[in-house]
Design a protein around this nucleic acid. Structure first.
Length: 226
DNA sequence: ACGAGGATGCTCT
DNA sequence: GAGCATCCTCGTG
């Protein structure tokens, strides 16, 4: 059981995201653990990225205001933010210094500390309800704003949130889709997941969701267009 | 099964 | 004031 080193995150988010599948997330309590089964990559040149547009094109300078500035932190730093005013979402910063990118941890299969997870997530009825979504996962682990911008690659010793490799070989090739729940850049295939794993989130990839909405809109219109 | 709607707070290509 | 990297509950089949 080894902490994943900073060098692992000192790469493109497009490489880190699929490579994190099968690795373990160890929570802030040092005991709760889950095997990651779903991630998404967010890139600097990406309209869905929180740091999109904060680089001034002519000068290359980064505007130091706004929440996206935290995504220029060193690789291996956490980026935790509040989504819809309700749920905390956990990302890891990637990319060499000077560039920005991150990986969203979307779903995981609990492997340790399940009793604590059930306590922190009263609405969960089955194990599958614990970490099968980015908001559920942070609630199960007790991750919130106080865990924003912390080093996930620090020295082992006292308990702290980090990623770990237990040497278990991934049993499955990652599947790919567009990302979930976004409205911009919905065609980029930057979601990675283990298709056969029951702990993957039930969300629908954004390109498929948009197509379904379009079809429904059209059939709804035809009812009144006669 | 599936769809609709509400909660709720922060940011602002 | 609009727009979100979501989840839960409560309606209808």
């Amino acid at each position: 059981m080894k902490r994943i080193p900073r060098s692992f995150f000192n790469r493109s988010a497009l490489d880190v995201a699929p490579d994190l599948l099968g690795r373990l997330l160890v929570g802030p309590d040092g005991q709760s653990m889950a095997r990651i089964v779903e991630t998404e990559a967010y890139m600097q040149d990406d309209p869905a990225f929180h740091a999109w547009g904060i680089v001034d094109p002519p000068t290359g300078l980064v505007r130091p205001s706004g929440r996206g500035y935290a995504l220029f932190a060193p690789p291996g730093t956490s980026y935790v933010y509040l989504c819809y005013g309700v749920h905390w979402l956990l990302n890891v910063v990637t990319e060499p210094e000077g560039r920005a990118g991150c990986v969203l941890i979307r779903a995981a299969e609990p492997t340790a500390g399940l009793d604590r997870m059930f306590t922190r997530r009263p609405s969960a009825r089955t194990e599958r309800d614990l970490c099968s979504g980015p908001g559920k996962l942070t609630q199960a682990f007790g991750i919130s704003g106080e865990h924003h911008q912390i080093d996930l690659c620090g020295p082992s010793g006292r308990p702290s949130m980090h990623f770990a490799d237990d040497g278990q070989t991934p049993t499955e090739i990652p599947s790919v889709s567009s990302r979930i729940g976004i409205t911009r850049a919905i065609d980029r295939p930057w979601r990675f997941f283990y298709a056969s794993n029951p702990h993957v989130s039930p969300g629908v990839p954004s390109d498929i969701a948009a197509e379904r909405r379009r079809i429904r809109r059209n059939s709804g219109q035809s009812k009144y267009s006669g």
